[in-house]
């Protein structure tokens, strides 16, 4: 009887937490979103087609176009070496403007304009998304300058 109970307990534990573990594993791998610069993502060819990605860089000066009377915008994310045209519809974050760092998230469709579902901006004093860090922005600025020379 005692042994039976123990077995029952252990089986219950295994079933409950085994399935939780499986759930964690599957949803974890499915929720990873990789970050790329325009150069990196353009180099992937079609291998990332359909995947959700984040693209980071600068909003190229002079590239921001607002469609009159709508919330649709078009702009170009540039890392200096390469440019990626982006489309977005909706409210932009407070810090979104030309010449500033930006991160756009959406499904990657090679050969088309990047349809951003979300646009990210700085969050608070101490925490900013990886791609928005001063170092990340400096890097894309640097490569932009290099390409201008």
């Amino acid at each position: 009887m005692q042994a039976n109970r123990r077995l029952f307990l252990i089986l219950t534990l295994l079933v409950v937490f085994g399935s939780l573990g499986a759930l964690i594993w599957t949803s974890f791998t499915g929720s990873l979103v990789y970050f790329h610069t325009p150069t990196e993502i353009l180099a992937t060819g079609t291998s990332k087609a359909g995947q959700k990605v984040r693209i980071g860089g600068m909003v190229q000066a002079g590239s921001l176009v607002k469609e009159a009377g709508t919330q649709k915008i078009r702009f170009i994310i540039s890392d200096g070496a390469n440019q990626l045209p982006v489309r977005y519809e909706g409210m932009t974050p407070d810090l979104f403007r030309e010449g500033q760092g930006v991160v756009a998230e959406g499904p990657w469709q090679p050969g088309q304009d990047f349809m951003a579902a979300t646009i990210l901006a700085k969050h608070s004093e101490d925490y900013i998304p990886v791609e928005m860090s001063a170092e990340g922005i400096a890097r894309s600025k640097e490569s932009m300058l290099r390409s201008l020379q």
Binding site: L20, L23, I24, S27, F28, G30, S31, L32, V33, Y34, F35, K52, R54, P129, V130, E131
Partner: peptide, 26 residues
Amino acid sequence: YPLAVETLSSAKVTVGAPYYNKVFVP
């Protein structure tokens, strides 16, 4: 995990909210 990935390779990755929501509901 994103910190580990960034340390070990140069790739940058974020873990989306769906992961947490899926696990936390059960």
